[in-house]
Nucleic acid binder design. Structure first.
Lengths: 226, 226
DNA sequence: GATTGTGAAAGCGTTCACAGCC
DNA sequence: GGCTGTGAACGCTTTCACAATC
């Protein structure tokens, strides 16, 4: 009776499933119908054992001696990620970054249509960005409820982020993708993922700084980098 | 004689140092001069043992019974991350995302001035975005060399990303922050970090999808989320 | 012969818990 | 008494290596 209705996927694996999914989509577009863990590994920039282990958490969907069926595996990953339907999202903060995120077609094309944008700056309200009208922040609860939105993108300046997050949570948002360069506090039930652009550069410059003392050999071999 | 001139910092720690650094900056602005690992942990959304372990990789910079000196710790983290000077960066791809990244003040203010943008679309060339003129992609090598650029931001569409990355590498770029939704191949010596916006949403929707079967308790306790 | 699926081993990262120092 | 620094324990992730299967 207590058998788990769905296996739990480890975080590390979860973070790679979207990469596999994208590769499968590209292969499908090219007309490829089958691939091995070795091929997937090369395309994803990881090793084959990892690909097999990752996919094994979803179930037994490969065929020994043959490989994986592109269409079937695509379907299984989509199902596992909850991508069988669209997830409407809202963007809070219509500054540079918020505008770019809404204009960037990548969200909509991957099943996350931006249904509304919000800003507290009334001079921005009613402007249209990437086909989406900017609304007053007070309209957030109504939109979240009427359009059944559970995911919000936080793209305000750091100083405004906590207040915006509080509003999002009160409106009923339960997952936040945080681009503001601050750590936000939320109820435990709300899931937050953080993308910190400057941090990424700081990590790169750390390694750049070390290059001086490191080996000066210029290795021309190419490797895939996830 | 073979003592390491600088300790190697684990990746996981490295990814948190920028967060600590930002918090220290905010504390300093408020006039705070001292903090404990407990306080830092609360602000960073991690636990105190992790803060102490992370900082211990840098050296022994705390004082037992007292805590850490904000200014001194700031200096040490900056030194470790190679932030004692500015790192000029270039943005390749002047579409929506590239424009937002250049306009977004966060790079410049944290020591990574955007010194040039590039696009292969000649109709974009010579337009000005966020105070930076867009140049033809052919000018990339000259700019990289004359301005001593080692970090490049890749913000092209997926289909153009590999070619753009090849050009960046040939021009002398040795670290790439990749926003294009594809895995790019580079020589091993070139370091690549990838920010995949749609992947982040896919991870969030996975958990959203599971909420249905999960516990329905609405816990109002607040926790910091990195 | 090819390739998957998976136990077991190895490697990392996190947390505990407490000695050491202020 | 308070707080750091760190060995040791624990848990998660990656990799190995090979039996199972087509």
């Amino acid at each position: 009776m207590t058998d788990s209705p769905r296996r739990r996927i480890p975080e590390a694996t979860l973070s790679r499933l979207p990469i596999y999914l994208r590769i499968l989509g590209e292969l499908s577009d090219e007309g490829t119908t089958q691939l091995s863990s070795d091929q997937m590994a090369a395309l994803a920039g990881v090793n084959a054992a990892k690909v097999r282990k990752d996919l094994s958490y979803l179930g037994t969907y490969g065929t020994r001696g043959v490989g994986y069926d592109v269409a079937f595996l695509t379907y299984q990953i989509q199902r596992e990620l909850g991508l069988t339907h669209e997830w409407p999202i809202v963007v809070v903060g219509a500054g540079n970054l918020g505008q770019a995120l809404s204009g960037y077609g990548g969200f909509t094309s991957r099943g996350y249509p931006v249904v509304a944008m919000f800003d507290s700056d009334l001079s921005k309200v009613d402007t249209v960005v990437g086909g989406v009208r900017v609304r007053a922040i007070d309209d957030l609860p109504a939109v979240v409820q009427s359009m059944n939105v559970s995911i919000g993108v936080l793209a305000t300046p750091g100083a405004a982020a906590q207040e915006a997050a509080d509003l999002m949570v009160r409106a009923g948002i339960t997952s936040i993708l945080n681009f503001a360069p601050v750590v936000i506090a939320t109820p435990r039930a709300v899931r937050v993922r953080k993308v910190d652009l400057a941090s990424e550069l700081q990590i790169l410059s750390y390694y750049e700084d070390r290059r001086q003392s490191a080996n000066p050999s210029a290795d021309p071999a190419r490797t895939a980098s996830a």
